[in-house]
Design a protein around this nucleic acid. Structure first.
Lengths: 211, 211
DNA sequence: GTGAAACACGAACGATCGTGCTGACTAATC
DNA sequence: GATTAGTCAGCACGATCGTTCGTGTTTCAC
């Protein structure tokens, strides 16, 4: 029934439970460490040491370092979804959603979900000058994030919660600028007041939080 | 007369003209390459190859890689002063100066003074999670840059060119956020429209350009 | 013009990088 | 319970890393 038809390429080697657990642990560490050491600066050896396994044992889970980097991005995306996107999506579309996305983003910086701030801002800054599959994936995720912000902004304008004047692209550019600045400033100096400044700026762009 | 008193530690080994030229060439290449490869990712060997000299010959100019990095930052600062700060300082203090600083910054991105965008945004993102002398120097320069922006904003408020409402710290936080976003977006996607969005945002913060 | 010192090179160092291979061990399948 | 294959460690590889040293070569001060 649910077994793949024999004509289809299986391609997927069957996976053992302990292997799945190891791979998860590796990628959890990789996603968090990458915001500190960088996605390229993070070496297989140090990641293995940090995960408590041998270099070759760890490497057996991936076919190359680039594959490890891509898998790490995927894991970081899951973490971001769980910590930022999902909580914000409980809010109604429109201005509530837009504020929630911004607040949850700033909250995940403050809670240090990643020790180096926003994963995608960190590795994006690292790979913006390194064309290839890794940069592409990061670029795609950022576009999705911006798309989600823009959808909420459009809905807010449609509902009359926001003036139509700055079109959503411009508005979200400025919102995202404040969020990026919050990441950069807070990671560099560690002062929570630098997160608060972003909230003040958001209030000027979006008006005070609804409710 | 202008020779150092013999009791003073000479400390400074006398320098030959060709050596000075070599060192300048090294640091010019280093400052520009660092925005692409990263200040840590830039290796002595590749920098030597790019400069057209041997690895050991290049290294003889510095006592360690960290010293090379610090000298590179100093050189980048000189370039930034020449390309951004000096031109803007020809404008009168206040709103004119503030707009000039912003415009010259965006212009130096567009002219690709550094191939990887803003040097200090790039290496700042790399070293924000690496405490040490390099991070400190970067942090100090950013504070000076922000200080210059804030001084212009204060003068503009004093002159009645800007409302006193957002205090200079908050205002410059938002200005700098737009400039940082311009760097990040333009470096990642290469679309000049992303620089124009920053200008539009600046106009909302500062009002239209004077004159 | 001569001597001292700055300069630049080649060779080499120990360490670490990403990447393979081999072979025990062990969990899942029949 | 035997077979299969996923898991993971040990070892080793070529390359590259930052760094040092010794040795010619070139510039500059006297």
């Amino acid at each position: 029934m649910n077994q793949p038809s024999p004509t289809e390429a299986p391609a997927q080697r069957r996976q053992r439970a302990d292997g799945r657990r190891s791979r998860d642990a590796i990628l959890d560490n990789a996603a968090r460490l990458a915001t500190v050491e960088g996605l390229e600066g993070l070496s297989i050896g140090r990641l293995a040491e940090h995960t408590g396994m041998s270099k070759s044992g760890l490497y057996a889970h991936f076919t190359s370092k680039e594959e490890l980097q891509l898998a790490t991005i995927e894991r970081a995306q899951e973490i971001f979804e769980a910590e930022v996107l999902s909580p914000a999506r409980t809010q109604a579309d429109g201005l509530h959603r837009l504020w929630a996305l911004s607040d949850e983003f700033l909250s995940h910086l403050e809670r240090q979900v990643f020790p180096g701030g926003c994963f995608f801002a960190a590795v994006g800054a690292e790979f913006d000058t390194h064309p290839g599959r890794v940069k592409e994936r990061i670029g795609v995720f950022i576009e999705e994030w911006v798309g989600e912000l823009m959808a909420a902004a459009s809905a807010a304008q449609q509902a009359g919660e926001l003036p139509p004047d700055p079109d959503p692209e411009q508005l979200i550019y400025e919102v995202d600028a404040l969020l990026l600045m919050a990441h950069a400033a807070y990671t560099m100096y560690g002062d929570p007041a630098l997160l608060e400044r972003a909230r003040v700026g958001l209030a000027r762009l979006l008006g005070p939080r609804p409710d």
